[in-house]
């Protein structure tokens, strides 16, 4: 059998058909060149180990190194700044207020929980997370969100006692708001925390 290193590679990758394996192995056994290639590539992993204090050294550095904060996209802030610079703050605020209440009235049923009430509370999550955190406490709303998360196969990022936390991308937050009109979240990466069961 002539040298065929494509077949040797296929053997190494585990993609060589079983019927050809025996003849390729037999060739490797008799051909020093193919044998060297086969032995070398299959020995890539090696057996070297990091020193015993490796983890401790890494952790020493970790404990003095802060995590990077996720850059928040704040188009609204830039927008408001632009308005302020144009000295039309009053007009801007009134527009914002009227737009906000108008949207809610248009999309929410009269008895639906509303954003900005005790049901969905945005607050600075401080050092616990780099994402803006929105906490949902209304049980009906929580149940709807959980059901949607399940449908979308979005898994919980970390449980803290009875609470659940989900990191949502801007697209997921937008899709969630579309699915549950009573919910209005900013279309940006955020963390959503659900409490009551």
């Amino acid at each position: 059998m002539p040298c065929n290193l494509d077949q040797v590679d296929a053997l190494l990758d585990g993609t060589l058909p079983q019927g050809q394996q025996e003849s390729v192995l037999s060739h490797i056994h008799s051909c020093p060149a193919c044998r060297m290639y086969y032995e070398a590539v299959s020995g890539l992993e090696g057996s070297a180990l990091p020193p015993a204090d490796f983890t401790a050294r890494v952790m020493e550095a970790v404990r003095t190194t802060p995590q990077e904060r996720v850059k928040r996209r704040m188009p609204l802030r830039r927008y408001v700044s632009g308005l302020a610079a144009c000295t039309v703050v009053v007009l801007g605020v009134s527009l914002w207020l009227s737009a906000g209440s108008g949207n809610q009235a248009a999309i929410q049923p009269a008895d639906a929980p509303r954003i900005g009430t005790e049901n969905v509370v945005p607050y600075d999550s401080g050092t616990d997370s780099q994402l803006p955190l929105y906490s949902v406490t209304d049980s009906q709303l929580c149940a709807q969100i959980r059901q949607w998360m399940q449908q979308e196969n979005i898994s919980q990022t970390y449980p803290q006692g009875p609470r659940e936390a989900y990191d949502l991308t801007a697209a997921q937050a937008a899709a969630l708001c579309q699915a549950i009109p009573a919910l209005e979240l900013p279309e940006r990466d955020l963390q959503l925390e659900l409490s009551p069961r």
């Binding site: 051909c31 020093p32 060149a33 044998r35 060297m36 032995e39 070398a40």
Partner: peptide, 19 residues
């Protein structure tokens, strides 16, 4: 890598059956 390793293999193979 094939070029280098197979050359090495031939070299070892011709002098001794190293592996």
């Amino acid at each position: 890598l094939r070029n280098i390793l197979t050359k090495q293999g031939n070299l070892f193979g011709s002098s001794s059956d190293l592996y």
